[in-house]
């Protein structure tokens, strides 16, 4: 029977080789993955702001489209992404902010777009999430994101914030997802933080 020392050396050697192979794979694909992630983010800003995107736009053109159509404007401490179809000096059509927070399993990141007067939501997208597929993962689906359109960002009492889940009918409430209450609560919390931060800077 082979000894313990051999077992240890074998395990160490195998571990090292596997780690090296994966390090090589990760560093080789890193620039491609980074480019994909950037394109994904650009696409999400555009979708949240409801900027028309031609079908099957290649990743590189998405970045160009974003740089053309969307301006980054600092409002106090909050970076906003402003869409004005008529050019930089024309009246803006929508304002988006980035939001992020802890999801159930991993960070959730996305964009929330509102009208320039900051009264209603125009669109919402999530570009990073690892929620449970089929339950919390449904937040990225069209049917859920569409319920947010035209949602008021203030309650009847005028306080900024929205409600995701059950409750009385209110202009600032949308239905949550059955089986994904934890995800919905977390999304509600991070959206409200984002909304408060932008309302404060106005």
């Amino acid at each position: 029977m082979k000894g313990s020392a051999y077992t240890l050396i074998y395990a160490a050697a195998l571990g090292t080789v596997c780690a090296l192979v994966l390090t090589f794979a990760a560093s080789f694909t890193a620039p491609y993955q980074q480019a994909n992630r950037e394109a994904e983010e650009a696409k999400n800003i555009l979708v949240a702001l409801n900027v028309p995107i031609p079908e099957k736009t290649p990743a590189k053109e998405l970045l160009i489209l974003r740089d053309e159509k969307v301006q980054e404007i600092k409002r106090g401490e909050v970076t906003t992404y402003v869409y004005s179809p008529g050019g930089a000096n024309a009246k803006p059509e929508a304002v988006a902010i980035r939001f992020a927070g802890r999801g159930l399993w991993a960070p959730i990141k996305g964009y929330l777009a509102m009208d320039p007067g900051l009264t209603k939501i125009r669109g919402i997208t999530f570009y990073e999430q690892e929620e449970t597929p089929g339950l919390g993962g449904e937040i990225v689906k069209d049917w859920f994101r569409q319920t947010f359109i035209d949602l008021a960002i203030r309650g009847a009492d005028g306080k900024p914030g929205i409600i995701i889940g059950t409750g009385e009918d209110a202009p600032n409430r949308v239905d949550g997802i059955s089986g994904a209450t934890m995800t919905c609560n977390k999304v509600q919390q991070m959206l409200n933080e984002a909304i408060k931060s932008i309302v404060k800077e106005k």
Partner: peptide, 17 residues
């Protein structure tokens, strides 16, 4: 460990291309 190496390799490849 061997299986995981192959799987992660494939996953990275998919994410990149």
């Amino acid at each position: 460990a061997i299986i995981a190496t192959f799987v992660i390799f494939f996953d990275q490849f998919l994410k990149a291309f």
